[in-house]
Amino acid sequence: METLKRRLLDMSIIFVLWLLLTWSLDVQSVVAGAILAVLFALVLSGLLPARVTRLFSPVRWFWALMHLISLAFWIVLANFDVLYRVLHPNLPIRPGIVRVKTTLKSDEAKAFLANSITLTPGTLTIDIIDDWLYVHWINVHENLEDTEAITRDIAGRFEVTLRRVFD
């Protein structure tokens, strides 16, 4: 029953995406989209993560929106940061790969945290191993071994919202 529900959800997402991309309600294109949605949902089994249904709650969506707003702010800041470093004649960078410990539990939350970190000023996630994120930082702090301070600077700003969305 649960699998069937997930398959139907996969199908409807693919179908809606098809309708948006073709943007036409011709019988031909709608029928083709329906057939393709069934085919793809069968082939790509488990397109969505397990327990996806629990993400359908207004509170989680509100925090997703908050996350997007804060992400947009950091993306703009990240771009001015790159602009400054690239255009500065002395190229002020002090790069290195540091370790960050995340408190997020689910895989989806960690994936979104990694992507968000990549889009924010001076940081690029290289790998996730268990609870540790390895992050390339373009301007590492003086204090290299202070994992807590590094974690606060890199991951802290997103964990608050992502925990409320996914965990």
Binding site: I75, V82, L91, I97, L119, I138
Partner: peptide, 21 residues
């Protein structure tokens, strides 16, 4: 940034952030 920054990781930083926005 792709041209000016020194190694592949720094270049990816510039490429990801600026090209995304």
């Amino acid at each position: 940034g792709l041209i000016r920054l020194p190694d592949v990781y720094n270049r990816l930083q510039a490429a990801t952030k600026c090209v995304t926005l």
